[in-house]
Amino acid sequence: MSRAAYPPPRTIWDGINPIRMIGELSETRYWMYLLLLPSAMLITAVVLYPTVYGMQMSFREMRLNRPDLGTDWVLFKHYARMLADPIFWTSLRNTAVWVTSSIALEFLIGLIAALALNRNLPGTKLLAVLILLPYFLPNVVAGHMWALMLDPRMGVINDLLVKTGLLVGYKAWFADPATAMAAAIIVETWHSFPFFTLLIMAGLKGIPADLYKAADIDGAGALAQLRLITLPMLKTIIAAAVILRVIGLVNSPDLLLILTSGGPGRSTQVLSLYAFQMAYKDFNFGYAGALSVVMFVLLMLFAWAYIRLSKVNQD
């Protein structure tokens, strides 16, 4: 006679089935937060923490070459110093000139290039790639290349200008306070106008051809069509491109660092460069932090005001 087969004894683990638990959790409203958690943690680690750390640094004394001063909280000391710092004001003014001039030129040339390339004439596909080439170059490479081309002794541009009679003698473009900023803006424009070309071209492809036909019949000339149809329809793209470029230009000191290092004198000193030099030349991280916070706030204010003024949200 065989023994009766009894079921195994029940334990507390019998009620726990991980797959079923996940399934049940996915039906609740907490599931969304759970899915967001990994990215939230990553953003906290690489964006939020450094930002908050940088901000708190601006309220502390933090000079690597003056350990005797300690790292105490100094509240608004750096900000107060900034108000009385003539270099800060020069940098702010230069930043405004640097950003507005570069963006105005980049937008204008980018728009013209995009409109030309959008005509789908023979060879435009190849031209489109060629026009985008400068943007593929890293800032550092582009900076060194132009520094060489504009070199006062062996630069090809000086040579060309002298040979064509436009210039009497070789000129040190980056050594003259009157021309340094303009020369740097030209280099920056050359490097980044393809960004506008690329985005505007994408926008132009989305404008129906029928609108231009209707405008032709309505009697709108080429300029009126550009002003009343093309530009309004590109508004959102232009707004996005301008904001991205402003952020890029305000935050990145690399091109100016290579071309002029802020000189001659302070003629090309911009805020990002000043903050960079304050941190890595003077080792004054507290003041550099305060400068960065000011840049951050200015950018936020700019983006907010620009979006409001361009009425992008209304469409």
Binding site: D210, K213, A215, D216, I217, D218, L228
Partner: peptide
């Protein structure tokens, strides 16, 4: 030129100017 032929055209896609009000669309010509 089309504008000087004194014609008006209605398109399949309507070709209304999306950024302008109806009033301005009608009065654009």
């Amino acid at each position: 030129h089309p504008k000087d032929r004194n014609i008006a055209m209605v398109f399949q896609s309507y070709a209304l100017y999306p950024t302008m009000s109806v009033r301005r669309n009608i009065g654009f010509g």
